[in-house]
Amino acid sequence: MSGIIGKKIGMTSMYSEDGKNLPCTVIEAGPCVVTQVKTKETDGYEAIQLSYGERKEKHTTKALKGHFDKAGVTPRKVIREFTRFEKGHQKKFGDIIDVSIFEEGEYIDVVGTSKGKGFQGVVKRHGFKGVGDKTHGQHNRLRAPGSIGASSWPSRVFKGMRMAGQMGNKRVKMINLQILKIVPEKNLIVVKGSVPGPNGSYVIVERWS
């Protein structure tokens, strides 16, 4: 695996060679700094820690500042850990990873936190159809879930029954998004399709191969 931390900039569209108008998302990815290398001997597993963005000195705790000082960089905003990083990308303290690890045309995954929708009913959250008619004597059951199980057996509601609850604001991974364009001088990746989260939110761009 290889990956990078980025920021969702927004969406636009561009034309493919066969004339199709493709929706695409612009991601500002990297440059990221390796701020820690975890090894089997010291931590029990292998991983590298990448940091991205700018954090103001006055918002940095002394503990964090010490951590960044070790890698010899200014404080960064986002810290993420990447396990099973490719052997070829085996990095050391302070190494910089930028968009050059990706190529145009290849397929990548993007991880982000989806937009929060709040506490939602089953019609919006799970695509239920609601109950029956709006009129003809129907009363206040329009978006109700209906029956959630039988009575005497099993006398309980099965685990995992789809009900109302918090929707969105959770980790979502979009897999197999094609990279349409890379602009190295501005650290931009343009991927086909949409990416979870609002504009300006932090995402992880990764490739499993």
């Binding site: 900039i9 500002e28 501005k186 343009v190």
Partner: peptide, 10 residues
């Protein structure tokens, strides 16, 4: 560069 400028750039 702001988000809007980056989109316009692309």
């Amino acid at each position: 560069m702001s988000k809007k400028e980056l989109i316009t750039f692309v």
